[in-house]
Every structure is written in C-alpha cells, then in structure tokens.
Design a protein around this nucleic acid. Structure first.
Lengths: 353, 353
DNA sequence: ATGAAAGCGCTAACAT
DNA sequence: ATGTTAGCGCTTTCAT
C-alpha cells in the first residue's frame, strides 16, 4: 500500500528510503559497478516498494546514450511493413535497443517531419524505407552521426547503409518469366505511381522486360485508396471488359491480385492456361485462396533482420562500420496462376533418349 | 555546405552563430514569447544553415513535459490494431502529441515490461488494450500521474478511463441473432482463449445466448498461429467432416471466417439457407469476397479516436478529468451469410391489413 | 564498495 | 524584447 505520488519519484526518494546514496542506487538499478549484495537487496526492495520507475530522460541526457532505434516507414496497413517490423524486433529483442516507429504515409514532406521529430530524441540509429528523400531529410541523415540504414530498395545511392532488393530487377524478372511462359497480351494493374517509388521501379523493370521481347503492354490501370481486394476485383472486371483478348494480368501487389483472381475464378476463366495472373509480395495471408497466386517474395522479414543487425553491430562499444550494402534476391513463386516456363535444354541433353 | 559535426549541435552553437542569447534562440525555435522579427529571422537562418536539430531530451527534462503518448497493444498483424492506430493518429495529428507504440504479443509479462520501459520516458498519457494486466502493471498505471485509457473492452474495472465495446455482449448479440434466424446446430471456431481475453468474453457471451435458447454448442475448435485464412479453411473442413449436421459456423474473427467461407463456397454449400456463417470485426479487407461474411463491427477506428480525444483533452493546460467511460455499441452486419431474423411484430400491427 | 561534485542541453522564472 | 540564473534527474568522473 503506497500512496499515489503527486510528483513522480526520483532516485533521491529511493536513496532516502534505502539509506544509500543516489549514486549507489543508480549503480544498482543499472547493474553497473561493484555493489555489495546487502546494499543491492536493500535498494531493490526500496525501489520496488515505492514503485519507482527510472527517468530515462534524465538518464539519457546525462549519459548521452539512448537505446532507441527510429524506424520510419510509409504505412502499417498493407501487410508489408508489419513483416519488416517483425524482423527488426526479432533482432533488437536480443539487444538493449528498442524500435520506435514513425509513419510517413508515402509523403516525403511527412517523412522529413517525422525524421526531424525522431532525431530530436537522439536515437542510436535510424532505419527508413526507400532511397528517395527530400534534400533536407538527406542532410539531416548525413549529419546525424548515427548509423542510418535505408531499406527495401537498392536501386539508388544510400546515405549510409542499405538493405533490400532491386525492384527494377524484380519487375524485369517477372516480365521475363511471363514472356518465357508464352503469354503475350499483358495487362497491368497497380497503385498510383508517384506515391510509391518501389512500385514504380517494378513497373519500369517489367515494361522493359516485355519491350525486350517485343511486347507492348496491352492495357493498364492505376488506383488509389479503398479496399485492395475490392479494387482488384473492380479493376480486373473493367479491364477484361475493355480488353478481352488479354492473356496475362500483372498486379503491383498481392492484395489486388487476390481480388482479381477471385473475380476470374468466378467467371470461370481457365487459369493459368488461357489467362495467367501474378502479384507481388508473397503475402502469406492469401495462401487460403482457392488457387495460389503467382508472386515474388520481397524478402521483407529478412530485410528487417539485416537492417537491425547492422544497427546493432555498430552500436556496440567502439564498433566501426558504415556503408554496408545488402542486396537480397527475391524468387518467383509460380503458384497456380502462372505457367512454368519450359525447362531450358540441358547443357549436354541427350536429345535422342 | 556544412561540415558534418562530430558532436551534435547545441543551442549554444546556434546562439553563437546568430549572435543571440541561448534563451532567445530557444524562444524562437519554440515560437514562444515575444521576439522581434529581425531576431527571429536571424536565428532561423542560423539554425537552418547549421542543420540544428533540437535536443528534446534536454528540453523534456527542463520543461517536465513530453509530447509522447504511449500506445500499448498486442500486435500489429491482425488488422484490428492498425485501425485503432489510425483513429488515434487522426486525433493526435491535430495536437502536439505523438503516439509511440509498444507491442505485447498478448503476453501480460511482456505488457508489463513494455509499460515500464515506456513510462520511464514519462509520456503525457497511456492508451493500452484491455483491462487485464499484471498487478505490477496496474500499480504502475495507477501511480503514473498521467491520463490512462484502457481500450477495446469495457467488461471490467478500468484504472482510469476506458473506451470500448462489451465483448461479452457482442457475443451474446450474435448468438441471439443466430437463434432468432432459426439456426440451431452451431459450431464455433476461434483462437486459443487464454491469450485473448476479448475473444474469450465473446465466446462466453455467445455460449450464454445459445444456452438461454436451450441450444448447446455442437462443435468447437481452437487454433493458434499460422495464416488465418488457411486455418479457417482447414478447421472448417475438419469440422464439417466431423459434424456434418451443423447449420451455423461462428468464427472468432473475420479472417478465419473468410477462409471458412471460401471453403464452403467451393463445396457448393447453400449459404445462408442450409448453412450460415459469421465472423467478428468488420474487416473491410474482405469485402472483395464472393459473398459478404456476416460480422460485427468492433468500432476500432472510433475507439482509437475517442481514446486519443480523452488524452488530448486532459493534456491541455490545467484540464481536469478522470475516469471517463465510453461504451460503444457494435452492430451486426448480416451480409450474405446470415439470414435476417423475421421482423418482430409491430407494436400495434394491423394484423388484418 | 561507496560517496561528492560537476554537468548533460535545455527551459522556467525572474530580471532588465 | 532580450538576458541571467538556477535547476530538471540522472550519470560521469574522481575521491575515499
């Protein structure tokens, strides 16, 4: 039974309650330096009895060390960033470091504001999505004097370290797989580009792969907002209506792809033979669908882990480092909606066998 | 062109660069007090040129005010908490306050640890999910001397304020709707209970409603982990196999409900006449499905808003308050998978008309 | 093993 | 409108 304090408790309160100097109390509470078992026990008892919660603000100011890692991402709502966060948390859970998340909603000015706000708390490091930032944001990052890891994308120049996949290459790889599987009348559906650089780069890579095969995209449509599943369904309906000769639909994310797939299945389309579909992301939410949508894993979990590992490694006493680059290689999952390309001839195939 | 500083910049640096006292620089940077336009401009220029980022740690220590609101929730991965966050952010975006999120993964000890960590940063308020906490956590909350809002659930005693729905009542309401619609052989599928108090309360309320109508649950199954869509499909398959006479399936969340629905549709079940289904949550992700799953909105967005409003209101200068209770009333969405109950007779119905 | 003094970078309160 | 002084609650460093 303790009386609720008007004023938050301080080290001094614990010091007085235990009859030990503030300094020693501080040592006990941080498990630092030599303290006799007897003193330690007395301090711990007093702290617990009072319900003392240390003031990290004062601690951080005095020690010039903060165990926070700023994580700045566009959104939490599309399933990709929560997975990145999982990876980050897994790694940081084994350290003293704690992630603190800020959201940009895909807006550069907002990213700049969030970054400023977070840097003002002097975090131990920053993990942020993408390589595109305002000049001011880039300047802040460069001058922060702490490890900075840009994640998701590697198509560009990082301020410091970067971990991700090449979205340009991912788009190209999918385009090539589609061409090799024999599809040729391709439609694309995706998010409005200017907001999402990575979706844009995938689109560019994809277009390029088709172009190399002499194929021009037969139709395309972009959306913003709304439930992705519904949007995928609606866009697909509209596109198949408008351009019925399409034999492949490429979606910029699995959620709209799933909506499209459900629509096509209802319509009784012959998938993947007369019509192929593919999405992007490897959202495992969707594995319960009647057919498994072809997709490409964005390595989100691994990206989170590797980024956190870089921060953690550089945060330990007197560590060196800087400019780490980790390029992950996503792979296509063919699922049930994309024909596998014919096996390439074996180098020394026995053709007569 | 500024040279990257080894040591982070301080107010003093800006003071020297602008030839204005630290105090005045501080005033300019916080838009407080009277400062001449000339001085203001000089300070702002110097700060920007240097790339100064204020140190909120020092600021918070000196002013005893922190603009952070601790938000402690179980998880980000099931679509319900991201929506709560949206509501919170919308409201806090119009204030000086900023949400900081901590995750408990539905574990009380973890909640306690996260709470301790967050309180040590002396936030302006705490929003946390649920009314069930460890004794230590409850004590910390009671002694923190800041507004505390417990959200989601109102079936219990709050430490301070609470905003949510009665999950017990939500379960009961759904049970009653099912009974009134004439279903009688009911199966239940849900998450493993001990982890999720709100799911447990819904289950209890549901069971009770059935019991009052003399109905005993015909089958039930609980799961943990894995993709919810797949689990819903698998559990449904197993249950329909085991207990083919079922005419209603109640799922503890929309995601497993969606998996079950897809399975039943594939099997050609006659929905909602021979078989009804319902979930919980009103996840609008799922509106793209072939049939609209009956569900009940958990008012997540509104809960977030109201909780944030309470914190915001109590944070303004000299505000009073405490113990606010907001009970929201979720409503059933019948969708395409639950028969509407027959209209109740009108009070003065003209029976002969 | 413990304590005393100084100061982290800011802001409140009080000058002027 | 601007400056000065004295902390905020800790930790660092140096004594003992």
């Amino acid at each position: 039974m303790t009386i609720p304090p008007r004023r938050p408790l301080t080290l001094r309160d614990v010091s007085e309650a235990s009859g030990v100097s503030e300094m020693t109390v501080s040592r006990v509470l941080r498990n630092r330096g030599d303290v006799s078992d007897k003193t330690r026990a007395r301090v711990l008892d007093a702290a617990k009895a009072l319900g003392y919660v240390p003031n990290k603000i004062a601690g951080a100011l005095a020690s010039q060390r903060v165990n926070l890692v700023a994580v700045i991402i566009p959104s939490m709502s599309n399933m990709v960033f929560p997975e990145v966060m999982m990876g980050i948390s897994e790694v940081l859970d084994d350290t003293e470091l704690q992630p603190v998340v800020g959201l940009t909603h895909y807006r550069a000015e907002r990213e700049e504001a969030v970054l400023y706000e977070m840097l003002s708390w002097r975090p131990a490091g920053v993990i942020l999505a993408g390589l595109e930032h305002t000049d001011a944001a880039r300047a802040m990052l460069a001058n922060a004097g702490i490890p900075i890891v840009e994640i998701m994308d590697v198509d560009g120049e990082p301020v410091d370290a970067m971990v991700g996949i090449s979205h340009r290459r991912a788009g190209r790889t999918m385009g090539e797989a589609i061409v090799q599987a024999g599809y040729s009348r391709v439609g694309f559906m995706g998010t409005k580009m200017p907001l999402d650089h990575r979706a844009r780069k995938r689109f560019e890579g994809f277009t390029q792969a088709l172009a190399r095969a002499g194929i021009e995209m037969a139709d395309r449509e972009f959306y913003a907002g709304g439930s992705a599943l519904v949007k995928g369904r609606e866009m697909t309906a509209a596109m198949m209506d408008r351009t019925p000769e399409l034999d492949f639909l490429y979606y910029s994310n699995d959620m709209i792809g799933a909506g499209g797939l459900l629509y096509c299945l209802e319509r009784g389309c012959d998938i993947p033979d007369s019509l192929g579909l593919a999405g992007f992301n490897g959202v495992n939410l969707l594995r319960g669908l009647p057919k498994h949508l072809a997709t490409m894993d964005a390595c989100r979990h691994e990206i989170g882990r590797r980024a956190a590992e870089i921060i953690a490694a550089r945060t330990i006493q007197g560590a060196q480092g800087g400019g780490e680059v980790v390029v992950l290689e996503p792979e296509i999952t063919f699922g049930d909606t994309l024909r596998r390309p014919p096996d390439p001839p074996l180098p020394f195939a026995e053709v007569d066998a």
